[in-house]
Each structure stands twice: as structure tokens, then as C-alpha cells.
Design a protein around this nucleic acid. Structure first.
Lengths: 221, 221
DNA sequence: CAGGTTAGGTGACAATATCACTGAAGGTCA
DNA sequence: TGACCTTCAGTGATATTGTCACCTAACCTG
């Protein structure tokens, strides 16, 4: 049944011509992936375009020195276009995608993707818009990493990670990966946040105590 | 006459079906821009896809604090796809493109772009490949900024900027913009390079004295 | 050549990263 | 239960990079 309705989830796709819709649904497979799996990366190359129906995928990069940085997240209703472009172009690709939750996705094979690009203005717009969003994400990352203060960035990230409730199950190392910095730096900044009453900490858990103050700090870009 | 031959310049495009080629050439305009002009940016929004026939465009981003960083360069034979995607998607777009040399380009209007995307597998591949290249460029920038040492990055940039000859007409401030750092930092690193015999400096000019040593430093990623 | 403008140098200090540890919290299993 | 192990977090010392303030030198213009 997901087959029958998933198109409605995606902006633009619902206006596809009926025969195109039918063909697309016929050629696509709905797949499920548990949380914590690497869905693509150096070595694990999909040749499908993935559309997320449910869940979230974190895309991150590992440097030669072994340190990580989170590039962006793909949410339900979005697609993994960047990776796909790199794969189609046979460019060496150093990023990897990891499911953060259980994920349900539609996999569109290369051939169906091509036919859709050829036949549907709406599909082309959808794909290009998806590209644009990712690219602006990347521009933002570059700006933050090059010019942002680490305490400001951490404040912002804590807020965006704690969407349901004020508790956050994460380690200092994971937060360091979020921002592309070192664990010790996160430890020190969080210690400071704690002293200022912004957060409480216990092993593997951070509780936001004063979202207003944290938001205020995050704004002082 | 450029109209007649420019398609041959672009990988993939020469294999377009003849009628598509003819239409594309008919709808496109060859434009010339002198060096040093801002061809797009916040406020100056083109709605054409640009293909560079000759010259080079530098794409850079300005942060809120007023500091700049170079994101990538578009060379002859390449296209400005990223910007186009952002523009098509009406995303706020903070980067700007500046011609570094006199530039000759083909401007493809939105309508012709759409028709080409619909009709030609080769054109789609061309566009997606261009995307992939830019994206890997951006990934590289993120990696460098987040984890790279400034002396290593500067060494690499000096080499890639000094393509014809060992002389480089640039200021410390311009090099700082290349790497997204501060002028003082460049001054100090270059002073160190000078002491080590890597380069000679005079006002507005840097001469590479020992490319081997510079390359060796640049490799120590 | 006087005066203005831009490029570059430098000291002091702040912020962030790295290194080398330390201890603390939680799990496992005899 | 307690010994052991693994992961997580804290911290001092030091290196690198960024910021601020101010200075001097080179070039331009009239």
C-alpha cells in the first residue's frame, strides 16, 4: 500500500501524469533499513535513487586523519540526490550515510530515474530543488566551520538535536563529530554551559535546562 | 562562429541529436564578460545556465562577519550548475561568482535547458556530472577547513594558483580569502616560507623558489 | 615631493586543537 | 558480589590559529 501512496509524500511528484506515476510505482521497490546501518559510503555503492518515506539518514564525512564531520541530514520526504550524482558520475566519494532511525524508503532504479527526468517537468524540479537544498546546506557548513564560534555552533546543534523533549542521548564524541571538532573541546564547552545553568549532564545524556539562553547564544552568530 | 562549434567543447554534448543541437545553438547567446565582474550573487540573479567557453570564474562566499572564502572555480568547458540550481529553487543564495579573466560563455535560457533535460540523456549526464564535480569540490573544502593545517593548505594553493610561471600576482588578503582565514595568518606563514627558502616576496607578488619543497609540504595532509 | 591609500609586519592576547594522561560509570562474568 | 574491562568524561600542558591594535613600507596621484 505504501506503493500506492508514497508519491503523495513528495512535493511536486503528486502532479506527475498518471501513466508516469503508474510506471514509477511499478518499477520502484519500498525498502526498510534498521537504525544504525550504513546505507551508502566508500565501498557500499547503491545505484538507486533513494526517497525517504520515514526516518532520517545522517550524511557524514571522514577525513584522512580519521576525524568525522556531519554534512547534513536527509529527512522523510527528501531524497539522497547528492550521493546519487556522485555515484552516477563515478566520482570518488568520501561521504557515508548512516540511518539514525529505522528507515523506510523508495528505491528508484537508474532507468526509471532517467525516464522520469525525461518525461516530467515536475520531477526535474523536484530533483533540482533537492540539489539546491543540499548545496545550501553545504555552504552553511563551510561558513560555520570556517567562521563560526564553537560555543555558538554547539548551542545551535543542541537545540536542533533535541526536538522531542529536553533530553539528548548522546556522547561528547558524537557532538564533536557533529561539528567536526575534538571531544575535549566539546567537554570544555559543555562544562561551561553547565556552570552557566544551560544544561545538566550525566554519562551519555545531556538535558537542556534553559532553551531560551541556549537559543540566545546560538543567535549570536 | 562560436555558435557553430561550442557544443564540441563540452563533454557529452557533441553526441546530442542533430535537431537538438540546432535548437540549442539557435536559442543560446554567446556573451563576453571582462575580468573582475560579478556575474552572479545576492542581488544579481541570472536565469540562464552558463557554459564557459573561455576564461575562469571564481565562486566565493561572504560570511555575516564579512570574511570571504573561495568555494571553487569554474573553468572553460564547465558550467555553473550549482548556482543555477539554487536560483531555480529560489533558495537564498549567499555565494557570488567573479570573473578572474575575460570570459566568453554560452547562456542557455531556462526553457531551452528544460527541453534539453527532457530530450537528451547526454545532456542529463553532462549536468549531473557537473553537479558531482562541484559537490566533491565542496566536500573537499569542508574537509580542508575543518581538519587541514593552514601551512599545508597554503602550500597547496600557491602551487595551484601558479600555473604559468613561478610568479604569483596576489596579496596576502587575497590568499586569506582563498583559504577562509585572516590576512595576519597568511603573512606569518609566508614569512616562515620565506625563511625556509620556499618563496620570495615583494609587494603584491610572490615567487615560488622551490616547488618541490612546497609540494612536499602540501602532500603532508 | 606631500599626502593619501593599500600592502604588509608584529606584539599581545584569545580561542581552538592536540597530546597525554586520569578517573569515573556502567557492563560482564566467574 | 566483586574483579575486570570498556567506554565516557575531565584536565593540564602545549601548539596552532584567529583577533585586535597599531605600526611601517610601498605605491599612487596630483
Amino acid at each position: 500500500m505504501a506503493d500506492a501512496v508514497w508519491i503523495e509524500r513528495f512535493h511536486g511528484l503528486s502532479s506527475l501524469p498518471a501513466p508516469v506515476k503508474a510506471q514509477l510505482v511499478a518499477e520502484s521497490a519500498v525498502i526498510k533499513v534498521p537504525a544504525g546501518k550504513t546505507v551508502f559510503g566508500p565501498g557500499a555503492v547503491p545505484d538507486n535513487l533513494l526517497f525517504l518515506l520515514d526516518g532520517r539518514v545522517r550524511v557524514q564525512q571522514t577525513s584522512e586523519s580519521g576525524r568525522d564531520i556531519v554534512l547534513y541530514r536527509v529527512e522523510a520526504g527528501e531524497s539522497c540526490v547528492l550521493t546519487t550524482a556522485c555515484l552516477l558520475a563515478h566520482e570518488p566519494y568520501s561521504a557515508e550515510g548512516v540511518t539514525e532511525t529505522d528507515v523506510t524508503a523508495v528505491a528508484i532504479p537508474r532507468g526509471a530515474f532517467d525516464r522520469l527526468m525525461a518525461s516530467s517537468q515536475e520531477f526535474r524540479d523536484f530533483v533540482l530543488t533537492a540539489y539546491a537544498r543540499r548545496i545550501t546546506d553545504l555552504f552553511r557548513v563551510i561558513d560555520d566551520v570556517a567562521f563560526g564560534r564553537i560555543d555558538v555552533r554547539l548551542a545551535g546543534r543542541l537545540l536542533s538535536l533535541a526536538t522531542d523533549g529536553d533530553d539528548l542521548a548522546t556522547t561528547h564524541q558524537q557532538l564533536a563529530t557533529e561539528l567536526g571538532t575534538a571531544r575535549e573541546v566539546i567537554s570544555r564547552v559543555l562544562h561551561d554551559f553547565q556552570k552557566r545553568g544551560f544544561v545538566a549532564q550525566s554519562r551519555g545524556k545531556i538535558t537542556l535546562l534553559d532553551r531560551d539562553q541556549i537559543a540566545k547564544l546560538a543567535e549570536s552568530a
